[in-house]
């Protein structure tokens, strides 16, 4: 049954979780971009960002071969550089078993998008079946999308119930809830949706910005709204939720800005892959390129790194 008034539902929730000022949040995050991270601190930041990367391929043309090479890259990012592995590979459900074989015992997790990613527009039972299938194939982590329609209509109960059911279908797998922030449009909505999702999640589950399939993805500002929500939720409940910005983070420098935001907002306890991830495909090579530059002192060409998309 649709709620009596979606406006009233939104107003009540906003009253409960508090609002976000757009100009203010943008001023705040601009300060992160003026931090200057050099030398050892830079190397630590780059390696930490690398260790937090969910190396992602979500294309219609993905094949077992592509997944195999992705997994190799995830485990051994670059010859001659001592780096951690990435946190996870992130693939479509049909690729989970190939990815599972690819990562083997490396410790790299296999994450699968599910729930009719990216729109979520199919029947709940189909979405749940997809989750169960991915978990059965060995997925360690599930990246679901929320029902944006239900959220915008003020039907928070439906949104919550669906997350609960997906959570149940996950079993032991970690759940990451994608808010698809570009479709929520306002920072107020991002904050509200974050709280709804966190209210259902277990400690160690994540909220995530985007699918990467819309025009606007992770930005420092929507990351900030979400990590401030995580912080407030943690201080209120003691439940530590993780954060995953995804889509649009392409450069090492960007990833350091995100990590500085984490350092200054959530503190040291979130500066690890159990609580913070980057959903990205091209970020990894730029991290490697900068690490190699720090090691050798010379700027590197993109094509020196495997699976580079730049060939010029």
């Amino acid at each position: 049954m649709p709620p009596r008034s979606s406006h009233a539902a939104h107003a009540r929730l906003l009253d409960e979780v508090g609002s976000v000022d757009q100009v203010g949040i943008e001023e705040r995050v601009a300060k992160f971009t003026t931090r200057s991270v050099k030398k050892e601190a830079k190397i630590w930041g780059l390696k930490t960002a690398l260790s937090m990367t969910d190396l992602t391929t979500l294309e219609g043309k993905d094949t077992p071969g592509k997944i195999e090479s992705l997994c190799r890259k995830a485990i051994h990012p670059h010859e001659g550089l001592v780096t951690p592995t990435v946190a996870a590979v992130c693939v479509y459900p049909s690729m989970v078993r190939h990815a599972k074989a690819g990562v083997g015992a490396s410790g790299v997790k296999v994450a699968s998008v599910a729930t009719a990613f990216p729109s979520g527009q199919t029947h709940l039972k189909t979405r749940l079946a997809e989750v169960r299938g991915a978990v059965a194939d060995g997925a360690d982590e599930i990246d679901m999308v929320i029902n944006r329609g239900a959220f915008l209509a003020g039907d928070f109960a439906q949104m919550e119930d669906e997350i609960s059911e997906v959570l149940e279908a996950c079993g032991a797998a970690t759940l990451k809830v994608i808010l698809e922030v570009s479709e929520l449009e306002t920072f107020d909505n991002i904050r509200k949706a974050s709280f709804i999702a966190m209210g259902v999640l277990r400690p160690g589950d994540f909220i995530k910005t985007s699918t990467g399939k819309t025009t606007l993805n992770a930005t420092l500002a929507n990351n900030q709204v979400m990590i401030e929500a995580i912080r407030d939720f943690y201080l209120d409940t003691g439940i530590a939720i993780g954060m995953k910005p995804a889509g649009g983070i392409k450069t090492a420098k960007q990833s350091l800005h995100f990590l500085i935001a984490v350092k200054e907002t959530l503190g040291d306890a979130w500066l690890n892959k159990k609580r913070y991830r980057f959903g990205a495909s091209s970020l990894l090579n730029d991290l490697l390129r900068q690490l190699e530059k720090e090691r050798t002192g010379a700027y590197q060409a993109p094509y020196s790194f495997s699976d580079a998309s730049e060939s010029y």
Binding site: S36, K38, K39, G45, L235, G267, D268
Partner: peptide
Amino acid sequence: RGLIFGDLWEFDPA
């Protein structure tokens, strides 16, 4: 429940 703002990632002088 406090947050930890420690020296896990201390910035080098810049």
